[in-house]
């Protein structure tokens, strides 16, 4: 199962992903129309792109008063029947990552749908901070490239 993964070390917060997303999804070049949001922490100079995590048991689904959020059986994505949205924004608050955003044109709250399997933000990320990879692969990589490698290197010094 592929999902977007972020390498926070590399992200410089340029916001190209947001522009690409907004153009793709809302037909407007504007970061606030984007379904990917860059959270900026000025204290540490951190830029963290945030987007729908496609939780398995999404809290937004519970909070939606119109029951229009659902887990797609095949893709395991969290999707919406956007036409039924009344814009109450309960899902926005329920989402810990505030990854649901109000689309100012349709006045429906929307979330990332991975562009149907070809996320444009990943495609156009100039720094290469975003990757579209299998989640178990991402976990394996991390295990290998951080935890394991540190131990290996420590043992080399012994």
């Amino acid at each position: 199962m592929k999902r977007i993964a972020v390498n926070i070390e590399i992200c410089d917060g340029c916001g190209v992903c947001q522009l690409v997303c907004s153009a793709q999804k809302a037909g407007q070049w504007h970061p606030s129309f984007s379904r990917i949001i860059i959270k900026r922490d000025e204290e540490f100079g951190l830029n963290v792109p945030i987007f729908c995590m496609h939780c398995s048991n999404p809290p937004c689904e519970t909070f939606c008063v119109m029951n229009l959020i659902y887990k797609d059986h095949d893709s395991d994505l969290t999707l919406r029947h956007e036409d039924r949205c009344i814009g109450c924004r309960a899902c926005e608050i329920a989402c810990p990552f505030s990854a649901a955003i109000m689309d100012p044109i349709s006045e429906a709250v929307v979330n990332c749908d991975l562009c149907g399997g070809d996320p444009q933000c990943v495609k156009y990320c100039p720094a290469g901070a975003l990757a579209f990879i299998d989640i178990s692969e991402a976990a394996d990589k991390k295990r290998r490239q951080t935890a394991g490698l540190q131990i290996l290197e420590a043992s080399r010094k012994l």
Binding site: I8, D41, F44, L46, V48, I50, F97, S98
Partner: peptide, 8 residues
């Protein structure tokens, strides 16, 4: 904070 961005 870098891995717990939702706090930001």
């Amino acid at each position: 904070i870098s891995t717990m961005a939702w706090y930001i």
